[in-house]
Amino acid sequence: MRIHLTSVFVDDQAKALRFYTEVLGFVKKYDVPVGETDRWLTVVSPEEPGGTELLLEPAGHPAVKPYRDALAADGIPLAQFAVSDVRAEYERLSGLGVRFTQEPLEMGPVTTAVFDDTCGNLIQIATQPEEMSSPS
Protein backbone atom coordinates (compact mmCIF):
# COMPACT_ATOMS: atom_id res chain seq x y z
CA MET A 1 0.00 0.00 0.00
CA ARG A 2 1.23 3.52 -0.66
CA ILE A 3 -0.05 7.03 -0.12
CA HIS A 4 -1.13 8.28 -3.50
CA LEU A 5 -3.34 11.24 -2.66
CA THR A 6 -4.17 13.40 0.30
CA SER A 7 -6.48 16.37 0.50
CA VAL A 8 -7.20 19.72 2.05
CA PHE A 9 -10.59 21.40 2.05
CA VAL A 10 -10.58 24.75 0.29
CA ASP A 11 -13.14 27.57 0.38
CA ASP A 12 -12.82 28.32 -3.31
CA GLN A 13 -11.19 25.93 -5.76
CA ALA A 14 -10.19 28.58 -8.32
CA LYS A 15 -8.56 30.71 -5.66
CA ALA A 16 -6.91 27.64 -4.15
CA LEU A 17 -5.47 26.60 -7.50
CA ARG A 18 -3.95 30.06 -7.92
CA PHE A 19 -2.42 30.00 -4.45
CA TYR A 20 -1.10 26.45 -4.64
CA THR A 21 0.42 26.95 -8.12
CA GLU A 22 1.37 30.64 -8.41
CA VAL A 23 2.41 31.20 -4.79
CA LEU A 24 3.53 27.80 -3.50
CA GLY A 25 4.80 26.60 -6.89
CA PHE A 26 2.97 23.29 -7.29
CA VAL A 27 1.67 22.24 -10.72
CA LYS A 28 -1.84 21.17 -11.67
CA LYS A 29 -2.20 17.47 -12.37
CA TYR A 30 -5.92 16.78 -12.78
CA ASP A 31 -8.80 19.18 -13.26
CA VAL A 32 -12.01 17.31 -14.00
CA PRO A 33 -15.53 18.73 -13.58
CA VAL A 34 -17.59 16.90 -10.96
CA GLY A 35 -21.26 17.78 -10.74
CA GLU A 36 -22.35 21.31 -11.52
CA THR A 37 -19.71 23.42 -9.81
CA ASP A 38 -17.10 21.19 -8.22
CA ARG A 39 -13.88 19.95 -9.76
CA TRP A 40 -11.60 16.99 -9.09
CA LEU A 41 -8.58 19.22 -8.77
CA THR A 42 -5.16 17.96 -7.81
CA VAL A 43 -1.68 19.44 -7.73
CA VAL A 44 1.75 17.85 -7.42
CA SER A 45 5.22 19.10 -6.70
CA PRO A 46 7.25 19.92 -9.84
CA GLU A 47 10.12 18.14 -8.07
CA GLU A 48 8.05 14.96 -7.99
CA PRO A 49 5.45 14.98 -10.81
CA GLY A 50 4.64 11.31 -10.22
CA GLY A 51 4.50 11.75 -6.45
CA THR A 52 1.66 12.15 -4.00
CA GLU A 53 -1.15 14.34 -5.28
CA LEU A 54 -2.84 16.96 -3.16
CA LEU A 55 -6.58 17.18 -3.77
CA LEU A 56 -8.02 20.68 -3.35
CA GLU A 57 -11.41 19.57 -2.15
CA PRO A 58 -14.52 21.79 -1.95
CA ALA A 59 -15.32 22.74 1.65
CA GLY A 60 -19.08 22.58 1.23
CA HIS A 61 -19.86 19.99 3.89
CA PRO A 62 -21.31 21.64 7.01
CA ALA A 63 -18.86 19.82 9.27
CA VAL A 64 -15.85 21.42 7.60
CA LYS A 65 -16.23 24.93 8.99
CA PRO A 66 -16.45 24.09 12.71
CA TYR A 67 -13.68 21.53 12.30
CA ARG A 68 -11.34 23.94 10.59
CA ASP A 69 -12.24 26.92 12.78
CA ALA A 70 -11.40 24.98 15.94
CA LEU A 71 -8.06 23.83 14.56
CA ALA A 72 -7.21 27.28 13.19
CA ALA A 73 -7.89 28.93 16.57
CA ASP A 74 -5.23 26.69 18.12
CA GLY A 75 -2.85 27.18 15.20
CA ILE A 76 -2.90 23.54 14.12
CA PRO A 77 -1.79 22.87 10.54
CA LEU A 78 -3.78 20.53 8.30
CA ALA A 79 -0.96 19.50 6.00
CA GLN A 80 2.82 19.52 5.95
CA PHE A 81 5.11 20.10 3.00
CA ALA A 82 8.85 19.46 2.88
CA VAL A 83 11.22 22.25 1.87
CA SER A 84 15.01 22.33 1.79
CA ASP A 85 15.24 25.67 3.61
CA VAL A 86 12.38 26.82 5.83
CA ARG A 87 13.82 30.28 6.41
CA ALA A 88 14.31 30.92 2.69
CA GLU A 89 10.70 29.83 2.00
CA TYR A 90 9.52 32.00 4.87
CA GLU A 91 11.27 35.02 3.35
CA ARG A 92 10.00 34.23 -0.14
CA LEU A 93 6.38 33.62 0.89
CA SER A 94 6.29 36.57 3.30
CA GLY A 95 7.45 38.75 0.42
CA LEU A 96 4.44 37.53 -1.55
CA GLY A 97 2.11 38.57 1.27
CA VAL A 98 1.61 35.14 2.85
CA ARG A 99 0.67 35.34 6.49
CA PHE A 100 2.58 33.13 8.95
CA THR A 101 1.13 32.12 12.33
CA GLN A 102 4.45 30.58 13.31
CA GLU A 103 7.77 32.00 12.19
CA PRO A 104 10.63 29.59 11.46
CA LEU A 105 11.38 27.66 14.61
CA GLU A 106 14.44 25.47 15.05
CA MET A 107 13.80 22.48 17.26
CA GLY A 108 16.82 20.25 17.26
CA PRO A 109 17.23 18.76 13.78
CA VAL A 110 13.83 20.03 12.57
CA THR A 111 12.87 23.52 11.49
CA THR A 112 9.22 24.34 10.92
CA ALA A 113 6.99 27.29 10.12
CA VAL A 114 3.21 27.59 9.70
CA PHE A 115 1.30 29.76 7.24
CA ASP A 116 -2.26 30.50 6.15
CA ASP A 117 -3.11 29.16 2.68
CA THR A 118 -5.86 31.81 2.24
CA CYS A 119 -8.34 28.98 1.62
CA GLY A 120 -9.10 28.16 5.25
CA ASN A 121 -6.10 26.04 6.23
CA LEU A 122 -2.87 26.34 8.09
CA ILE A 123 0.03 24.59 6.39
CA GLN A 124 3.30 23.60 8.01
CA ILE A 125 6.57 23.61 6.10
CA ALA A 126 9.44 21.62 7.51
CA THR A 127 12.98 20.66 6.71
CA GLN A 128 13.55 16.97 6.35
CA PRO A 129 16.50 15.99 8.52
CA GLU A 130 18.96 13.73 6.73
CA GLU A 131 18.28 10.78 8.95
CA MET A 132 14.54 11.03 8.35
CA SER A 133 14.55 11.66 4.59
CA SER A 134 16.63 8.60 3.74
CA PRO A 135 14.97 5.45 5.05
CA SER A 136 17.90 3.19 4.12
Binding site: D74, G75, I76, P77, T101, Q102, E103, L105, M107, G108, V110, T112, V114, L122
Partner: peptide
Protein backbone atom coordinates in the same frame (compact mmCIF):
# COMPACT_ATOMS: atom_id res chain seq x y z
CA UNK B 1 11.83 34.27 23.53
CA UNK B 2 9.00 34.74 21.02
CA UNK B 3 5.75 36.51 21.78
CA UNK B 4 2.51 35.85 19.94
CA UNK B 5 2.50 32.07 19.85
CA UNK B 6 -0.39 29.80 18.95
CA UNK B 7 -1.22 26.84 21.17
CA UNK B 8 0.30 24.63 18.46
CA UNK B 9 3.63 26.48 18.62
CA UNK B 10 3.75 26.32 22.41
CA UNK B 11 3.05 22.58 22.30
CA UNK B 12 5.73 22.12 19.62
CA UNK B 13 8.33 23.95 21.69
CA UNK B 14 7.54 21.96 24.82
CA UNK B 15 7.67 18.61 23.08
CA UNK B 16 10.48 19.17 20.58
CA UNK B 17 12.79 21.57 22.42
CA UNK B 18 12.14 20.46 25.98
CA UNK B 19 11.10 16.85 25.43
CA UNK B 20 8.11 17.34 27.69
CA UNK B 21 5.52 14.67 27.09
CA UNK B 22 2.45 16.73 27.78
CA UNK B 23 -0.88 16.67 26.00
CA UNK B 24 -2.39 19.64 24.23
Amino acid sequence: EQSGQTLFEICSRLSMKHRLGISR
